[in-house]
Design a binder for these strands. Sequence first.
DNA 1: TCTATCATGTAACCAGTTACATGATTTT
DNA 2: AAAATCATGTAACTGGTTACATGATAGA
Lengths: 198, 198
Amino acid sequence: MERRRKVPNPLALVVLAWLSMQPLHPYELGRRLQGSGQDRHIKYTRSSLYMVVEQLAKAGFIAARETVREGQRPERTVYEITGSGRDEFYEWLRELVAQPREEYPQFAVALSLLSLLAPREAVDLLQKRHTALTVKIQETRKLVQEAADSGVRWIFLVEERYALAMLEAELVFLTELTGSLGDPDYIKSWQETFGSLT
Amino acid sequence: MERRRKVPNPLALVVLAWLSMQPLHPYELGRRLQGSGQDRHIKYTRSSLYMVVEQLAKAGFIAARETVREGQRPERTVYEITGSGRDEFYEWLRELVAQPREEYPQFAVALSLLSLLAPREAVDLLQKRHTALTVKIQETRKLVQEAADSGVRWIFLVEERYALAMLEAELVFLTELTGSLGDPDYIKSWQETFGSLT
DNA sequence: TCTATCATGTAACCAGTTACATGATTTT
DNA sequence: AAAATCATGTAACTGGTTACATGATAGA
């Protein structure tokens, strides 16, 4: 009977992370998420941020500390983390690090339906993917390189390195797969099974 | 201005896939999804299946063909794919194969917050993950092996091979990472930055 | 025959996204 | 000073999940 997290959205985790360092209002939180590039690895929109903040408050993990108004701008509510929020944060982070979660990459679904495409077309499409992945790898490499050059320490780039490792592994996989799809035996058996449908 | 898909849930894609081969009622669809093991790569529940079927019908991609009642069981509505449903299916599948989507693995988020854990603890947690991944890899290998042995063709196991490739790549990454975390320079600088907070 | 489980679906609730609002600053 | 964009948030809609319902069959 593992209790499920009260606010399971990963965005909540990074909110707790930032608030564990200092109280902030939602808008500023959003700015930092973007500024730090963390928004590349979560689904972030301002609206969902406000929602998540509200949920965290309701769950008692954060609390409104004060409401300030600067000039005629809308009021901003500053939130701070609570004790139970800090507990939740660390427990959650530890769990995420130690236990692989079931993820559902869309590509896996596509692969499970690959037999429905003519082998020749499948190969073409996979080659397009190969190209796109290569571009993405270049971009990420550049980003990491530039960040490192400008003094960002490696620990703040691990997630990019992870992304890179995954992308590169996928490239290798793609190459093998296109090889298999070119096998005459496969092409023949595909035509026998599906050829009549096209 | 790329029109977004009317029914973006990946479950809809596999529903279209099955219906592209023969008309079925939702319950039978669910049985096949489970039977074929495709439910390992999508988020599937019966309720969301009914929801998706409804959405697909509303979008005109599938249509109710007849309603049958067997004994005193609840009525079952049999759906068939429409022309525009078939178009949608193939276009969607091609897109998924050819273009990498932005995915948001939870582990990437965790990694982006890794600096908040003491290096020693981080290493311990990553080692637990390593173990868990190893187990998962064994299981998947076994599953693939047994399926292949019982006559399943390789094309129907690609998605498992893909999963395997990703898991293995992550293992390698983990090993490198734990190495970096053990570096005395890093440990020292972590203590200077965060040591006081513990 | 009682209990458990299967077969099949509906309904109520909650999370997340898209669209809207509105005063302040900056640019032309 | 008009137009564009920034700063900040709310509201309305829709998708997805959890919980509930109910007759049928099978096992003890």
